[in-house]
């Protein structure tokens, strides 16, 4: 049981470290794939894809990426219902996504090679 305890603690630690940057990539990819979206809609789309993200993680992430210039938000107020804040990729965000995507693919390919080499 000791190894399991240690493994569980390590995985949780690793998970919270590794997912931040990964979520940036996922949020950008999501917005690229659907042109524009708002918070709850993004949470659901991410959850459907298998990434459960709380609002406590997503909204601060969106706020940061807006501040950094990757996202362009705009408020819409429909005739009925409540206002919504829609996000779309800014031109900077599109460049950032392309570069992140390439970097990520490179890393995955490297991991595959490393695993293949030790077999």
């Amino acid at each position: 049981m000791d190894e399991m305890d240690a493994a569980m603690a390590l995985v949780e630690k690793w998970r919270s470290q590794s997912r931040k940057g990964f979520l940036d990539l996922c949020a950008l990819s999501l917005l690229a794939s659907r042109d524009e979206s708002y918070g709850l809609d993004m949470m659901e789309a991410l959850a459907q894809a298998g990434l459960e993200v709380s609002e406590g993680t997503l909204y601060p992430l969106l706020a940061r990426m807006t501040r950094e210039g990757s996202l362009s938000p705009s408020w819409t107020t429909p005739e009925t219902g409540h206002p919504r804040k829609y996000y779309r990729l800014s031109p900077t965000g599109q460049l950032v996504l392309a570069a992140m995507r390439e970097e990520f693919d490179r890393n995955v390919a490297a991991l595959r090679r490393i695993e293949g080499g030790t077999r």
């Binding site: 990964f22 990434l51 709380s54």
Partner: peptide, 15 residues
């Protein structure tokens, strides 16, 4: 806060 509440992400590959 991240450690306690934001743990819902499933990264199967990692496991």
């Amino acid at each position: 806060a991240e450690g306690l509440s934001g743990l819902g992400v499933r990264l199967r590959d990692a496991l």
